[in-house]
């Protein structure tokens, strides 16, 4: 049976093939960084989490199970790194400098150029667990089943978190003058 590309890439890395490692890093840095960015909300923390995720992944590469897609496995590590970083930050700094304003003025309207910022702020206003399912669903395009695997929670929980997260996002965006 032919080895999967994922398994082949992993085997080559485990055999010390630097070129395979470069392929792995350059191929996955973009999606992993984006996931970390959406969870953490700023580029510096996202870069740190991405870096930590790769180091952890390489350290544990011999435990990679080829029954799973390498992308899902890497993504899971990156999401967990981002969430861990978030916890550490919250412990160190309870109020983020850029804390989301949940009580905007009633007449506040959103300029088109700020829509992305509003949506990202809306994401950051969610709890970590709600934000994570949104990131996995909308930015990684994972199915309920894949999200369930990555987060190790039942699919039913994935659904309920996703519905609640969207409802909260919608209410917040409406409160901030964004038409949904």
């Amino acid at each position: 049976m032919t080895k999967s590309r994922d398994q082949s890439l992993v085997d080559r890395c485990l055999n010390g093939d630097r070129q395979a490692l470069e392929t792995l890093v350059r191929e996955y840095q973009h999606p992993l960084y984006n996931a970390a960015y959406r969870i953490l909300g700023n580029p510096e923390d996202a870069a740190d989490a991405t870096q930590a995720a790769f180091l952890k992944a390489i350290e544990n590469l011999d435990r990679y199970d080829s029954n799973y897609k390498l992308f899902s496995w890497m993504y899971r590590i990156a999401v967990n790194e981002a969430l861990n970083q978030l916890k550490r930050k919250k412990n160190q700094q309870p109020l983020d400098d850029r804390a989301v304003d949940d009580n905007p003025g009633p007449d506040e309207q959103v300029e088109a150029g700020n829509l992305s910022r509003e949506i990202q702020d809306g994401l950051m206003a969610l709890t970590d667990s709600y934000r994570t399912v949104i990131v996995l669903r909308h930015f990684a395009d994972f199915s309920y089943r894949q999200i369930s695997d990555v987060l190790e929670i039942p699919e039913k929980t994935v659904k309920s978190r996703l519905y609640s997260a969207r409802q909260l996002m919608k209410e917040r965006l409406l409160a901030h003058g964004v038409t949904v």
């Binding site: 490692l21 959406r38 870069a47 180091l55 990202q120 949104i134 930015f139």
Partner: peptide, 26 residues
């Protein structure tokens, strides 16, 4: 709206920073 959020570009030196820190088995 969520699906259309722009992709973020990682810092240009991120891949090299990562690669610099990784020691392969051999």
């Amino acid at each position: 709206m969520l699906d259309s959020l722009p992709e973020q570009t990682p810092p240009a030196d991120l891949a090299n920073r990562i690669l610099d820190q990784i020691q392969l088995p051999k």
